[in-house]
Computed example of a mutant assay.
Amino acid sequence: MASRFSRAGFVGKLFIILTRLALAFALGVVALAFAYRYVTPTSTLMLAREIEGEPVQRLYVPLAQISPNLRAAVIASEDALFCRHHGVDWGALREVIDDADADGPSRGASTITMQTAKNLFLWPWRSAIRKAIEIPLALLIDFVWPKRRVLEIYLNIAEWGDGIFGAEAAAQRYFQKSADRLDLRQAALLASALPNPRLRDPARPSRQLSRRAATIIARTRSTDTACVN
């Protein structure tokens, strides 16, 4: 009997500890979300690379110093309804949820805001738990930040190759120019590389990458980017 009570007491204490940790994490994330509206952030992936001893290259620039071509190409490629939704594209999420495996919905269900939330606060590998946390974080970010800030941070923390983070570092690495001087094809090639940036080289694109870039260029003509111009 005593053993049963002691076991129940241990489970109760463990539950309280885990609840407090979860609450502390939530409060910390909320505080950071408000702070990151004004403060330059660092992504969890960048921190992981640095902890592992890998070189990290990033040159943070404001959105005004990133070519409108890249803004349009990334929105057309990653999240065509970025200017219309409030952090989560519920229609896209519903379309993939029935086909999702145990790891949760695919990248196709992730908005730019959701990817920003993941890159800033969560871990890179897919899981249903991560997706469940990612959604409310995206809603919070969209509520706290203007759309221009969301895209600015996303473009400054996205990985574009081994240790290459952000549009400015990527533009200099692949095209030897600053991010504000990217033409539409170069922007589309960078956007095409995002789903698998460590294996795709925008400077030496494969046929598949070039075709993907051409598709993105065509999509930019009908993509709403008014919220970030």
Rank of each mutant, 00 (worst) to 15 (best):
Leu18His: 07
Thr215Gly: 08
Ile135Arg: 06
Val228Phe: 00
Ala117Glu: 10
Ile16Glu: 11
Glu159Leu: 02
Leu27Ile: 15
Ala8Tyr: 13
Arg7Ile: 13
Thr19Pro: 07
Arg148Phe: 00
Leu151Trp: 01
Ala33Cys: 09
Val30Ala: 13
Arg20Lys: 09
Gly104Cys: 09
Ile157Thr: 05
Ile216Ala: 06
Asp98Lys: 13
Arg20Phe: 14
Tyr154Met: 02
Arg49Ser: 10
Ala22Thr: 14
Ile157Pro: 00
Val11Ala: 14
Ala48Asn: 09
Leu45Ser: 14
Thr19Leu: 15
Ser106His: 12
Ala138Val: 06
Gln208Arg: 12
Asp79Lys: 05
Val61Cys: 08
Arg212Ser: 13
Asn119Cys: 11
Ala80Asp: 09
Leu32Pro: 08
Arg198Ile: 13
Val228Ile: 08
Asp98Ile: 10
Val39Asp: 11
Ala2Gly: 08
Arg71Ser: 05
Tyr60Asp: 13
Thr40Gly: 06
His85Asp: 03
Asn229His: 10
Ile157Ala: 01
Thr225Cys: 11
Pro197Gln: 06
Pro124Phe: 08
Ser77Tyr: 08
Ala31Leu: 12
Gly12Gln: 07
Ala170Lys: 01
Tyr38Met: 11
Arg200His: 13
Asp89Lys: 07
Thr42Arg: 13
Pro55His: 10
Phe10Tyr: 09
Tyr154Ile: 00
Glu54Arg: 15
Glu159Lys: 04
Gly166Glu: 03
Cys83Glu: 02
